[in-house]
């Protein structure tokens, strides 16, 4: 229960930061507009190839990758604790670091859910990706699970860069690029060597993307994909918690957590 309450308290920061970053207008016309342009760009590659099937494939992949790009902002927003000088206070507090950091960057989950939903439900039909009412409703659920589970994964690099703040954007961009390349967003996973296929199964977004493609193709068999997404996310969450504890322990040993840090 304490974990949940600390997590909830952490979300205060998340939404305060989000409100300071965006207004409704800037989020809609700047952020959402940018993501729609990105998704349309990828989709038009499919159009250029003259293949409606590839057009739909790329649209779905790019829309789901919008989630990845956004939740990986957790790399940056995790380091904001260090910038604010609150990290030593958090380490010296009786609360769970994982609960704090899990709440700290949660703003990217609803935001990415909204962007990807708009891309798939509003832009999708313009390029032949259509949805029935039941599949549209289920799509939002699937996207939420995808965003939430991918966020659990993003907490791992977020925790890792706390000791290398200068690398936060590089790490987020490299991971985002690797996921886009290998998890079935722009080319099928089967395009790559089989070991890559096995490796990307460890990422929740791979399963979330499969669930979205299932819905986009008219099917409803998404539960196994979501189950894998949740399972892998739970593992990544444990890893993030371990990394945060290690950060604190290492900081205690080598003095890298400074007062006023």
């Amino acid at each position: 229960m304490h974990f949940i309450r600390v997590f909830q308290a952490g979300t205060l920061n998340a939404f305060a930061d989000f409100a300071a970053t965006y207004t409704v207008r800037t989020w809609t016309f700047a952020w959402l507009g940018r993501i729609i342009a990105q998704v349309v760009f990828f989709t038009l590659i499919g159009t250029l190839l003259g293949s409606p099937e590839q057009q739909r494939f790329l649209l779905v992949g790019a829309a789901v990758m919008a989630i990845v790009g956004e939740v990986l902002f957790a790399c940056a927003s995790s380091t904001w604790e260090r910038r604010a000088g609150t990290l030593p206070l958090l380490v010296a507090s009786p609360g769970s670091l994982l609960a704090v950091f899990a709440g700290r960057s949660i703003q990217w989950v609803p935001s990415s859910l909204a962007t990807s939903s708009v891309c798939l439900l509003c832009v999708g039909p313009l390029f032949g990706v259509t949805w029935s009412v039941p599949s549209a409703l289920l799509l939002v659920v699937v996207l939420f699970v995808t965003a939430a589970t991918t966020y659990c994964f993003a907490l791992v690099p977020g925790a890792a860069v706390l000791n290398a703040m200068d690398l936060r954007n590089i790490v987020a961009n490299v991971i985002g690029a690797l996921i886009t390349a290998f998890c079935g967003a722009v080319v099928p996973v089967s395009f790559w060597p089989s070991w890559i296929g096995w490796a990307v199964n460890a990422l929740p977004v791979t399963h979330g993307l499969r669930a979205v493609r299932e819905l986009a193709s008219g099917g409803f068999d998404v539960l196994p994909h979501l189950g894998y997404a949740v399972l892998t996310a739970a593992i990544w969450l444990v890893v993030a918690g371990w990394l945060l504890r290690r950060l604190a322990e290492r900081g205690r040993r080598d003095g890298t957590i400074e007062f006023g840090d």
């Binding site: 305060a16 930061d17 604010a84 000088g85 609150t86 206070l89």
Partner: peptide
């Protein structure tokens, strides 16, 4: 624990 200075608070 109480620090002096600007840091250690959530400004937003």
């Amino acid at each position: 624990i109480v620090f002096g200075g600007e840091r250690g608070l959530y400004g937003r």
